[in-house]
């Protein structure tokens, strides 16, 4: 049980460091990277907290969160690149 708490604290410290990068980040890409890293660590956090509180059902949330995190990163990058979320990547690529 102690190991779960230790891991949770380590994850929180790591998230705080990534948050620091998100605040400092000179470019917006640094901030996206920090957001992505925080998302991955949140997946870990959900899993560990599920075990810490004795409710492994939380893993369903971790599963969904890992996919949402990926889609979110791609969506933000696409918005940065094209200025819009409409249309497929291949159809808009030739225009600019």
């Amino acid at each position: 049980m102690i190991i779960y708490a230790v891991t949770a604290i380590a994850i929180l410290v790591s998230i705080a460091m990534a948050l620091g990068r998100a605040i400092l980040g000179p470019t917006s890409y640094d901030r996206i990277l920090a957001a992505n890293a925080i998302g991955t660590k949140t997946v870990l956090m959900i899993g560990v907290v599920g075990f810490l509180t004795g409710r492994p059902d939380f893993l369903d949330l971790a599963l969904v969160y890992s996919l949402v995190n990926f889609i979110g990163t791609i969506a933000v990058l696409k918005y940065f690149k094209f200025g819009t979320l409409r249309g497929g990547l291949t159809s808009t690529q030739g225009k600019d």
Binding site: A10, I11, V13, S14, A16, M17, R21, L24, A37, L44
Partner: peptide, 10 residues
């Protein structure tokens, strides 16, 4: 590894 990752990000 997680702490090293956070350290590396900074």
């Amino acid at each position: 590894l997680l702490i090293i990752t956070g350290f590396g990000l900074l």
